[in-house]
Simulated scan of single mutants.
Amino acid sequence: MVVLTLLEKCYSFRWRHFLKIFESTLSPLIEGLEVQFKILGKTGENWIQVEVFGSDVPVVTRYLDLKFGLAPVSLENLNVFEEVRGKIVDARRVGYGLYVDVGVSSPRHIDVLLPLHILRSQLGNGKKLSVTNLVEAFALYDNHPLTIQVTSIDRTKGKIEGRLSSSQYSLFEEWVSLDFDRILVLGRPFTEVHRVVKRSNFERDVIKVLPLGFLEQLLLCKLGTEGPGIINGIGSMLPRTPLHCFSPKKARIIREDP
């Protein structure tokens, strides 16, 4: 038997219901293997915890790591240059960078700091942009999933720093280069968001819904469709759910020289 902390969070005012949805999603993924599992709930930082037991535990553990990622839990399990998935927390907490929760909870909870000068270099072409500028331009709001690379660990002081991984950086560069607005829905499972889009009058304006995480979805708008209009149209159908628009035009503007 093993208890795993997955790098998927369950939050929002309907988190208990969403845990049941996650359980029903997980069941068919391990069908046919000699294992049983139980959703234990979530940690204080909202990471989903699963208990797995049976002869195929090693196989399932590896699969869940590939599918969702496994939290390091202890700082001792995290290494420099390692790539790890996480979620943005307190997006505008400080002016010197962005914090990402990667599931480190021992010896205490520690978030990874993406320093402002690194974010400026990776996302802002080196311009002296503020954290707020970058958050708004790239929709770097709470619970936005990111893959980061750890660049330094001070185990004595309990501090971790990182940067966007190569794959994450490339993804943002793709977003900027293509003239498609994108809408982030933070706090709803894929099935609910997909259903809302189909029932709305905006289905023709959305190319597809892409899952970024269990409760984080991305709406790819058709060329010429403005994201804020979609948000205004479907916002009432997704109450108490943060919706944010990424506009490639706005992202390119903040990168340009004055």
Rank of each mutant, 00 (worst) to 15 (best):
D257H: 02
L223E: 14
G187K: 07
G162S: 02
L6M: 10
I21Y: 09
S166Y: 05
G86D: 04
E161V: 15
S200E: 04
K249T: 14
R16T: 07
V52R: 04
L66W: 12
F202R: 09
P58M: 03
I183F: 02
V89H: 01
G103A: 10
E136T: 11
S27F: 05
I234E: 07
D181C: 03
G97E: 12
S236T: 04
K38F: 04
V135P: 08
Q36S: 14
R240Y: 13
R182L: 08
L113R: 08
V209H: 02
G69W: 12
L64Q: 04
L218Y: 01
T132N: 14
I30N: 03
F190N: 05
G95Y: 13
D101T: 01
W15N: 07
D65Q: 09
V209P: 08
F190E: 07
P115L: 09
T132R: 15
V193N: 10
V185P: 05
Q168D: 02
E216L: 00
I148M: 09
R240D: 12
S105G: 03
S55G: 02
P211W: 05
I118Q: 08
L114V: 09
V35D: 10
F180V: 05
T43Q: 06
T147A: 03
E34C: 01
Y169N: 04
D90M: 10
G213L: 00
L178K: 15
K67P: 00
N125F: 05
D257E: 13
H244N: 04
I234G: 03
P58E: 08
L223D: 00
L70P: 05
G86C: 04
S24L: 14
F81D: 14
L171P: 00
L119I: 10
S236A: 15
D65A: 11
P258W: 12
K198F: 00
Y63P: 08
L113H: 07
N232Q: 13
L26M: 06
S27P: 00
D111K: 00
D65K: 12
S121N: 06
E76Q: 11
G233E: 15
F68D: 01
F13Y: 06
I153L: 13
F214C: 06
V131N: 09
A251C: 09
Y63D: 04
N125K: 12
S130M: 08
L219C: 06
L238V: 01
D111C: 03
K42R: 15
S130A: 12
E161T: 15
N201A: 02
S152E: 14
A251V: 06
I253C: 03
T241I: 06
Q168V: 02
L6C: 08
T132Q: 15
I231R: 12
H17D: 14
E256W: 02
E34Q: 10
H144I: 02
I234P: 04
K208P: 00
E82D: 14
K128G: 08
G97L: 09
K9H: 08
G54N: 12
T61A: 07
I39Q: 06
F214V: 04
V102E: 10
S121D: 12
Y96L: 13
R195T: 05
F18P: 00
P248C: 06
R199I: 01
L19C: 08
G126P: 00
N143M: 01
K87M: 03
Q36V: 05
A251S: 13
F214D: 04
I234Q: 09
L219F: 08
D101M: 02
I48D: 05
